[in-house]
Design a protein around this nucleic acid. Structure first.
Lengths: 250, 250
DNA sequence: CGGCGGCATTGATGCAAATCAATGCCGCAT
DNA sequence: ATGCGGCATTGATTTGCATCAATGCCGCCG
């Protein structure tokens, strides 16, 4: 665990928002936390309170935010960059169970252990909340509790989709579904584009999809050869989204 | 959806319990619902109230309790038998995301859609709650809300374990882990035994572990040949649990 | 009793993805 | 510049599991 010194600095660049107007927003210019769908459930006074109990922190690539067997002492909100969440087998085999993008929370399950390891993919900014402070904050707000529960339900649903993908889909289907999914997720945080950023390594993608690095590489090159995608530095441009949807449709 | 006529009959056989004493229990003799770990969070008066809003129902094998795309209008508590929860691809490929045993809840995520299909494996008894009644019941009880949230977190953690299993483990490891897991689950509901009941078909096990029926069969036969297990009607006796743990350890 | 249908087992063969093995590409430090 | 280390790509080969194909077992019903 390396969640040591709190830095208390606000998030780098601010984005448009309208929290108190009830729409999904990218966060508040004067806030450290970055909220998306949770936001609608918060009054702006509550958001300020949330902000007050948070500690902003920037970490460099490969920094471990927490380890799977560690006691879940903190809740994190990712504000910049990508975090990989994974489980490992004793012999080193690894399964990435998710990538956290800006706006996502980590440690929200409120179990006593994290259960997964969280590691910065590149440079990452997070806001940290002491578990106790977060719980105290949430406890008096039933509407928030409900919202968090719905969130957990959504997470579970995504996990089940991923099970279907891991257990029953081919390499090509996995890749296509992954690309479309990443595109949709970036779109939701305001980065709508046919060019999907892939800040994580091929090994990360492989460990997310239950494949090897070679199969990921080969499948991407094949899709590129067939003009379905164009591989660009740190990302992929989706040229034939229709075809990708046909392949990756769930 | 075939959650039609409420039958209003109590659960078949009763089991020992001590809900109001704060320990995990098997349910109440005079109650229809069957609670395990949730129970500790409930006062007996609350349990009665929960019971009052429930409708008991017995269904035969292969009955669909709900379909993945259906609106989540009900919450279920399994009281007898096993329910399979699965997702399907348009072409028929199926991934079972979990088996619900007596004491388990279905539809607790409180999403608007179920997201998975639930089907009785054999004869099954459930208690049904109208979603609205269940929500009304839960709403005034923050401790219960918290508990449900912890539950959701636990479910998510199990789902992540399953991702690791599906993405990164061999057929033999999958089978061994599955057997030990089923044993542990039956133990928790009071059926401690080296003989693990397997009421579901080989096809179900295959669809749960991301394998084919033939691979499940072959792997079990091999484990039997190597005296790690003994295959019995509707179950497996774990002869060499140490070996199974070595194979299936996570 | 016999035949039928659904499931499980077992064997032969095929194939998608893993493994093994270079090679290439780049950023970076010397 | 040059060499080095980390990642990605590409090719050759292997292999674990899937697929295809019987065969067996058993409960059920006429």
């Amino acid at each position: 665990m390396s969640i040591a010194e709190p830095l208390q600095e606000p998030c780098a660049e601010a984005t448009q928002h309208d929290c108190k107007h009830g729409r999904a927003a990218n966060g508040c210019e004067d806030c450290k936390v970055r909220l998306f769908s949770v936001c609608a459930a918060l009054e702006s006074s509550e958001l300020e309170e949330l902000d007050r109990i948070s500690q902003a922190r920037k970490v460099q690539a490969r920094t471990m935010l927490f380890e799977q067997s560690a006691l879940a002492g903190s809740v994190f909100n990712v504000t910049e960059g990508v975090v990989r969440l994974y489980k490992s087998l004793p012999d080193g085999r690894r399964q990435i169970v998710g990538f956290a993008l800006p706006g996502d929370f980590l440690g929200l399950a409120l179990q006593d252990r994290y259960g997964v390891t969280a590691e910065a993919v590149g440079r990452v900014s997070v806001c940290r909340f002491a578990r106790s402070a977060f719980l105290a904050y949430v406890d008096g707000k039933p509407h928030l509790l409900r919202r968090l529960h719905e969130f957990a339900g959504h997470e579970l649903s995504l996990a089940q989709d991923q099970m279907l993908l891991l257990g029953r889909r081919t390499a090509e289907e996995k890749i296509a579904a992954f690309l479309l999914n990443m595109q949709a997720r970036y779109a939701r945080i305001g980065a709508v584009s046919v060019t999907v950023p892939l800040p994580m390594s091929r090994q990360d993608i492989a460990d997310y999809l239950g494949l090897t690095i070679e199969t990921v590489s080969r499948t991407l090159t094949r899709l590129a050869r067939e003009k379905a995608v164009l591989i660009v530095p740190d990302g992929v441009r989706l040229l034939d989204q229709e075809r990708l949807k046909r392949i990756g449709a769930g």
